[in-house]
């Protein structure tokens, strides 16, 4: 987006104002939503929804075809021995492993996402990043998880960051674009908000908190800030942008907390894998344990669930 584009944002209502964020109040609101009590039927349906929204991820230097195939099988059938457990939303891998995942998931609803644009730092020439994304699409990725150049953002080069996002969007073609802000490196919530606005204006289909390589990764409060940006963008343009908190979500209880935040910030329209994803892998088994517990009434132990 150009300087002019940014200036125009200032003239529009809603999120277009350079919105400032009060940290204490956001933390308090996110904390308040964590006190929602999710029991019985709500818990069961919520956990199933969580699975449907999950992006199972492996992003290690040591990822092999075997590891990715195992992950894909888990994605398709998270627990063969529990009734009505749906497939997850997507599997997220490095570009080289996209063909493996694609083959393994063929004919299913599970989508393949690839990280790209010099993940996780984004500190490569734009041509390299565009090529990275283009090739991931060519390799069959349904979704591209790009990173923004946080260095450029923090240096105040917002138009450049926006421009890079729109260029990546162009090469994505049909593939959905998730823009990773890496909120753990942005400092203040004001920056998270500004980066969210900028990414949406530049063409993001989803905005995503983190690479998983930096602490802190997703937090409920940061997610709330981004959901509020999505809300204002919707008010203003009518476009519904998706949200993906990633990293740091380890328990089923935390995952349900995120669902609560979505439900009470954006409402029913966003309670779908089309518009909300959870980037988490370790949480899946805890979710399955909770589902089994609800069904059997007995607390579960992790040995009884497959580790993939």
């Amino acid at each position: 987006m150009t300087e002019q584009g940014l200036a125009q944002r200032g003239a529009l209502p809603g999120a277009s104002r350079e919105a400032s964020i009060d940290k204490v109040s956001v933390d308090e609101r996110a904390g308040r939503l964590a006190t929602r009590s999710i029991k019985t039927e709500a818990k069961l349906s919520g956990l199933r929804l969580v699975i449907r929204m999950m992006d199972l991820t492996t992003l290690e230097g040591c990822d092999t075809p075997g590891k990715v195939r195992a992950l894909c099988r888990k994605a398709l059938h998270p627990a063969a021995d529990i009734a009505d457990v749906p497939s997850v939303a997507a599997v997220c891998v490095y570009p080289n492993l996209v063909p493996i995942a694609k083959k393994e998931l063929e004919g299913s609803t599970v989508r393949v996402a690839a990280v790209a644009t010099a993940f996780p730092s984004g500190l490569s020439p734009l041509d390299v990043k565009l090529d990275d994304a283009r090739r991931a699409v060519e390799l069959g990725a349904d979704e591209i998880d790009m990173v923004i150049d946080r260095g450029a953002f923090l240096a105040g080069e917002h138009p450049r960051v926006a421009d890079e996002i729109s260029r990546v969007k162009e090469v994505c073609g049909e593939a959905h674009l998730k823009v990773i802000l890496e909120t753990g490196e942005l400092g203040a919530y004001d920056n998270v908000r500004r980066a969210s606005d900028l990414a949406m204006e530049a063409g993001a289909d989803f905005i995503k908190t983190s690479t998983g390589k930096i602490q802190p990764a997703a937090t409920p409060a940061v997610t709330l800030v981004m959901l509020e940006a999505i809300r204002d963008f919707y008010y203003r343009t009518g476009r519904r942008i998706g949200m993906k908190p990633a990293g740091g979500i380890r328990t089923a209880k935390q995952a349900l907390h995120y669902l609560v935040i979505v439900k009470e910030t954006l409402g029913d329209d966003w309670l779908t894998p089309e518009l909300f994803r959870l980037g988490a892998s370790t949480v899946l088994n805890d979710v399955l344990m909770q589902i089994r517990k609800l069904e059997t009434g007995a607390y579960q132990a992790i040995e009884y669930f497959s580790k993939d």
């Binding site: 709500a42 818990k43 954006l266 409402g267 329209d269």
Partner: peptide
Amino acid sequence: LHFGDAWQYS
């Protein structure tokens, strides 16, 4: 926005 019963608290 629609705050309905897509997912309701018990």
